[in-house]
């Protein structure tokens, strides 16, 4: 949309910026701030917001000061006679009906333009990612690149990425505040959106539609990287998992594909046993930066904690609910089992 493609003038930016500083201190610490947009979609939404915000400020200041003035000016003083019993004023009433209409038209035109602008991808033949939401994690499939991964979305910088949104269970909503406003994932109703990252870095996203007990813990990261880095990532993702040689990790693999029955829900490319699709794909788990759908850093300790008591990290999660190792005391994992599994999972680079 031409009206707002360019960046807003300095003045327009100044006050909201000030607002942001009051609101948020310095904003690199605010990973989901909508004021710090880095893609054309979020940018157009922010520009529209500023536009309406200024209209609203104008109305707010005008009307509230009028109200204040009236309150101060027409206070009753002792001995005041009854005021004149005026019933209305046609001209005035027409004016204050028409004025808002004009003001709204000023807001409405860019709104409609931006709606259509953001609805249609500028490059429909560009890259595609299928996002599938689950209670409470994300599946990212790249049909063109033949890559399937979870909870961490890699995209090349400055390229249009066409996203299709689906869900396997309830309604979720896909939202990366700095890159694009949210679009819901509705069962039986695939939605489309497009995104473009204009800055290299890690951006945070979160499910925005209430989806059950761990709704708050359904987060993810978007890694915007150079085309070269992205290609390298794709190449490494395509590789099957390395079969570990270290004995502890080897024991972990046996457990994973054996008694612990991790294989029934998780997929590890290259393994003939681990083909489950109920849980996240773990082929390159230790290449990821976060665990448990973006909730804690991917460290040895956190992985251990996760395996020991998943429900503490992510209440209500399906693994804790359904896996025999957690709900059948006879099959519970011992400390050494967990060590072995941690070693194996850490080896999945």
């Amino acid at each position: 949309m031409s009206l707002f493609r360019h960046h807003p003038t300095r003045l327009v930016r100044l006050v909201p910026l000030l607002l942001v500083f009051i609101v948020a201190g310095c904003y690199p610490d605010h990973p989901q701030s909508t004021f710090d947009s880095t893609g054309p979609v979020a940018q157009s939404q922010l520009n529209l917001f500023y536009w309406i915000f200024w209209a609203a400020v104008f109305v707010f200041v005008t009307v509230q000061s009028a109200l204040l003035y009236i309150c101060l000016k027409f206070r009753r003083k002792p001995g005041d006679p009854d005021p004149e019993q005026t019933h209305g004023h046609n001209k005035l009433e027409i004016i204050w009906t028409v004025l808002p209409v004009i003001l709204l038209a000023i807001v409405a035109v860019p709104t409609v333009l931006t709606i259509f602008d953001n609805a249609n991808s500028p490059d429909p033949d560009g890259m595609h990612v299928n996002v599938v939401a689950h209670q409470w994690w994300w599946e990212f499939n790249y049909p063109g690149e033949d890559v399937k991964t979870s909870n961490e979305l890699h995209i090349p910088v400055d390229e249009v990425v066409n996203v299709s949104l689906e869900t396997k269970d309830v309604i979720h909503s896909f939202w990366i505040p700095k890159i694009a406003g949210k679009v819901d994932m509705v069962p039986g109703n695939s939605n489309k959106m497009w995104i473009k990252g204009e800055e290299i870095g890690i951006f945070h996203g979160q499910c925005a539609e209430f989806c059950g007990e761990s709704h708050a813990n359904m987060r993810f990261q978007v890694i915007v990287e150079s085309r070269a880095d992205f290609d390298a990532w794709v190449a490494s993702e395509r590789e099957p998992a390395v079969i570990p040689v270290e004995p502890l990790a080897k024991a972990g693999l046996d457990l994973f594909e054996g008694d612990a029955q991790c294989w029934s829900c998780h997929k590890v490319e290259g393994s003939s046993r681990s083909r489950g699709t109920k849980g996240p794909n773990l082929t390159h788990l230790s290449g990821r930066q976060y665990l448990g759908a973006g909730i804690v850093e991917n460290s040895q300790t956190n992985l251990r904690n996760w395996l020991t008591s998943p429900n503490d990290l992510k209440p209500g999660n399906i693994m804790y609910r359904d896996a025999a190792v957690y709900n059948d005391p006879d099959k519970a994992l011992s400390d050494s089992d967990i060590s072995a599994l941690v070693a194996y999972l850490r080896s999945l680079k």
Binding site: T34, A42, S44, Q45, L46, L48, F49, I52, F53, A55, A56, L104, V107, T111, T114, I115, D117, N118, P177, A180, G181, K182, V183
Partner: peptide, 11 residues
């Protein structure tokens, strides 16, 4: 009125 603007309401 800010929410009514569907595009910026996405945020």
């Amino acid at each position: 009125v800010m929410h009514s603007s569907a595009a910026s309401d996405a945020q």
